[in-house]
């Protein structure tokens, strides 16, 4: 059965079935209109699909939906919708859900065995603190506590300059 693209009347070659708030919505698009909407056709399962499947398999869906990163504030559900994480700390915050997802996208692997940065040890200690400080800074700005914000900004700048040096 052939469908017309719902946007431009060309032949639809991309057929989507989305479940939004429990409602099944079918869409038919031509390749160009699908690309314009940011829908890409990949050989690999799209990440949102993988996450979806993973969630369905799990009986602990409720638990996932409560997950939230306390540094960047992204919830697991937001990540599930967009496919992109919010900050490096999410890997820790969502670790027990992510491991399954990573194993599915990386041939059963969830541990890095490759290259390590030269300054890895020092970097890791500082990067976690910086992420936390940036979160606190945003909060301080939000509640208009400028004195606190200024102090936090100085601290962020100090640590950040240590991590990322200007070329001489």
């Amino acid at each position: 059965m052939k469908f017309e693209c719902e946007k431009c009347q060309h032949e639809a070659t991309v057929h989507l079935t989305e479940i939004i708030n429990g409602q099944k919505i079918e869409r038919h698009l031509c390749e160009q209109c699908a690309a314009d909407e940011g829908i890409t056709i990949k050989a690999q399962l799209p990440i949102s699909k993988v996450i979806e499947e993973l969630m369905l398999q799990s009986s602990a869906e409720k638990e996932f939906s409560d997950l939230r990163c306390n540094v960047c504030g992204i919830s697991f559900l937001e990540f599930r919708r967009g496919g992109l994480l919010g900050c490096p700390n999410d890997y820790e915050a969502f670790e027990h859900v992510l491991v399954g997802l990573l194993e599915r996208s990386h041939e059963g692997n969830s541990c890095h065995v490759g290259k390590v940065p030269i300054n890895a040890a020092e970097g890791q200690r500082v990067q976690n603190e910086l992420l936390r400080l940036r979160g606190q800074l945003a909060e301080a700005v939000g509640r208009e506590d400028y004195e606190e914000a200024a102090a936090l900004r100085d601290r962020v700048r100090y640590l950040s300059d240590g991590l990322h040096e200007e070329p001489k």
């Binding site: 992109l84 490096p88 990573l102 541990c111 890095h112 390590v116 500082v126 990067q127 991590l163």
Partner: peptide, 19 residues
């Protein structure tokens, strides 16, 4: 790396926006 420090975890390696 002489000038920048990259987000890295010993378990997951170089950390990227998309897993």
């Amino acid at each position: 790396e002489e000038h920048l420090t990259f987000a890295f975890s010993s378990r997951f390696g170089y950390l990227t926006a998309c897993p």
